[in-house]
Design a binder for these strands. Sequence first.
DNA 1: AGTGGCACCTGTGTGC
DNA 2: TGCACACAGGTGCCAC
Length: 273
Amino acid sequence: MPELPEIETLKNGLQKPLIGQRIVSLEINRPSLRYPLSTDLSLAIATKITGLRRRARYLLIDLDNFYSLIIHLGMSGRFTLQNSDYLPQKHDHVIFSLDGQSQLVFNDARRFGMIYIAHTKDPAITLEMFKKFGPEPLSTIFTTKYLKNKLVNRRLPIKNLLLDNQLVVGVGNIYASESLFKACISPLRLSCSLADFELVKLVQSIKDVLRKAILAGGTTLRDFVNGSSQPGLFQQVLSVYGRVGQSCRLCSAVIIKVKQSGRSSFYCPNCQK
DNA sequence: AGTGGCACCTGTGTGC
DNA sequence: TGCACACAGGTGCCAC
């Protein structure tokens, strides 16, 4: 579920209804998700929401006390805005009540999600993992030149490297497979074997696939919904992900599924070399 | 340093 | 119908 386009969709949808709202109370139904929830989360109480941002797969909610809530959906997390008549559901772990009588509900069946609170100005001061992040794929920093420098000494399959947040953030299992299809590159290719023209195509493909997925409101295979509880639509136009045994949309060859470091990769053996 | 494997946890689908 | 099992979109830790 939640790769870059899904979190961007979540941010875009929640921005308007949340900015200016005051958090009046906090209900924690489970003291730990992936990690124990910090008691510092109470710093969010009686603050006003001033902005929403995204970094990698994290949603940042800026508060007027110069702290930010930092939310990760894990694999199955949902973060939705609900009305006052909302009936609590199983796995509603954290609920923020807002002064407009609505509530922000964090629901996560698998509990791989995380909620932190950190200084607004630079979460990397507080959170170690933010220091390690590579560039945003849709930023001007993520270029062919950057990718070439990073891959030159690496001997991993390119698919594995695209999932590495230190190389580039926000590209997960779905969009790695889709981007490699669009770039006509097999997920099995060793990264150091990619020619310059293939790196150009790969960078363009990653940006293009992510932009289109954002426009479609993300991909919903099972769990993802936006802040208004609506699913995404990009799964309707996936080229290879989840299409094992089906025909390639370009050449009609049969889509193949392979395991790479325990994760499924999908590709067209005819289009991708 | 780079890499693979595993653990974290629950729900769903499949096969017997 | 009931059970066992495999598998799922992410991330971080550990051993090699």
